[in-house]
Design a protein around this nucleic acid. Structure first.
Lengths: 153, 153
DNA sequence: TCGGGTTGCTTGAGGAATCAACTATTGAAG
DNA sequence: CTTCAATAGTTGATTCCTCAAGCAACCCGA
């Protein structure tokens, strides 16, 4: 078999290195600003925001984990801490005894109100202030297609 | 002050969610395939590859950390493990007693040879098989500009 | 209604990342 | 020459994530 596809050419390399830089540095940058402002990691913040936009601000742990791009185990650990801090509450699902439902508490809602402006400001200054409208669309589209491939693994 | 810039509109949100998905899921996907194939995390692999392409396959710890998108502390811990496994060697810089130089060993080179094809295959199937030539250029360019902003924090 | 298999979630152990504190060397100012 | 700040790197404590194991509830065919 030919192995030309087994290596990255110069153009691919010139895109790959910055892309790796992005995926390695962005989470840390978001963590830092959220940690400083409200004491949450970006993953924790994402969990709360996802709940905020859910029906009844409530969601099954499994679905929440998937939407937040994390493992169920990771979410379980995180939910324990967030629950200890009073930001969310968990209770057994009435219709399926295996499931656990997580819901946002008032403290959780209130914390999101405090956190959102600073976080949006960070995201804007790092991403959207740098890109044109067309680029934003393009980037989102490419990211979505790549994520679909990762999910399909 | 107006706060319209304090929120993301629909188009921005439609790009932001997949982008977050990408940065949260890609590292795990790369880790998994490398861990399975050669027992290294993607960060560890990146450290070795970066050394491979350096002058004399040798680099200062600080510079290595920066190029690998990690903290010096993280690199220090990782280098200790890699050195214990015989994949790299560290020694004091002759011209500046504060610096430490890291260099690839023969085992390190050999491991890279074994790891590269599978890793490239993974990257290709997740990223480059999905994108057109133009998209690759665009994506790399956008990523580079965003990373520059993160570095400037 | 019983048994086997699956699903949803939690837990504990182990390893890895982060943060702050520390040592050591260098460079520069007085 | 001495001091003081800045730089480079390591280390230890804490926090966090992953993985494998476990448990309970559900589903379904016999």
């Amino acid at each position: 078999m030919s192995d030309e596809a087994a290596w990255l050419d110069d153009e691919e390399m010139a895109a790959w290195l910055p892309l790796i830089g992005l995926v390695m540095r962005l989470p840390g940058a978001l963590d830092q600003s959220l940690r400083r402002d409200v004491g949450l990691s970006h993953f924790e913040y994402g969990v709360l925001v996802t709940l905020e936009y859910a029906e009844n601000q409530t969601m099954r742990m499994s679905d929440l984990a998937f939407l937040c791009n994390g493992s169920l185990s990771r979410l379980s650990h995180v939910a324990r801490r967030l629950e200890k801090d009073g930001l969310l509450r968990r209770y057994a699902c009435p219709t399926d005894g295996r499931s656990t439902l997580a819901t946002l508490t008032d403290s959780g809602r209130e914390l999101l109100k405090r956190a959102a402006p600073g976080h949006v400001q960070t995201v804007r200054s790092l991403i959207f202030d740098e890109l044109s409208r067309d680029e934003v669309r393009l980037l989102g589209d490419m990211a979505r297609r790549i994520v679909d491939r990762i999910k399909a693994l």
